[in-house]
Amino acid sequence: MIRFDNVAKRYPNGHEGLAGVDLSLHEGEMAFLTGHSGAGKSTLLKLIGLLERATRGQVWVNERNLNKLKTRDIPYHRREVGMIFQDHRLLHDRTVFDNIALPLVVAGMGHAETKRRVRAALDKVGLLKKEKVFPITLSGGEQQRVGIARALVSKPPVLLADEPTGNLDPELSREIMELFLQFNQVGVTLLIATHDVDLIQSFDKRIINLRHGRVADDCAGDPV
C-alpha cells in the first residue's frame, strides 16, 4: 500500500528532512510513527500526501509511483489519502456539516449522497448532534473528531494522522486512538505520527521509530 525505497528529502535551505528511508506498509496495516521532533515524521507523511516531493528515491502509494505523478493528478491522489492534522485545519466560517462535506463537494458528489455520507461519518466519530454548529464552539477533542470525520468521509484507503492527539489530554487521546483502531478493523491503512509513546505502547500495533531522517527501529506489534 505504501512503500518507500531509499527516500531522501532535502529542503532548499539545506535541511535534510529524510536521509534515506526504506519502509513498507501493506494494505490494511496500522502503524505508529515516532521520533523526536525534527526526526522526519511530518516529512514522511507529507511525501505520502504529496505535500512535498522526494528529492531522492521512490515513494509508492496505492500502486502508484508518486515521483511520476503529474502535478495535475495530485488532487486525485489526495482524494485517496485522508489527512488528519494536529491543528485540525477546519474552516471556521462553515458548519461542522460543511467542513466534513468538503472532500465530497470537491469530488463533485451529489447532494443526497453527500448528506448520507456526512451523517455516517459524524455518527462514527460521535458528533451526530453537532452537524449544524460552527467548529469554534466545539472543544479541542471534538474539533479533532470533525477533522477525522472529514478525512474518512470519502472512504480513502489510506489515512494519515500527524500528531492527532498533540493537544489533547490522555483520556481524549485514548478515545481518538481507539477510533483509529476501529477504522483499521474495517480495512483502512493507517499511519499515525505521534510522540505519545506511552499511549501507543498499550496498543498491539507496529511502531516505526525515526531518528535523524532514518528508520532507527521498526517493531511489529506484539500480541497482547
Binding site: R78, R79, R89, L102, A107, S154
Partner: peptide
C-alpha cells in the same frame, strides 16, 4: 488563503 489550502488538501483541483 486558509480555505484554499484546505481545499487543496482534500483534493480540490485547480479548476475547482
Amino acid at each position: 488563503h486558509g480555505e484554499i489550502e484546505i481545499v487543496k488538501l482534500v483534493g480540490g483541483t485547480d479548476a475547482f
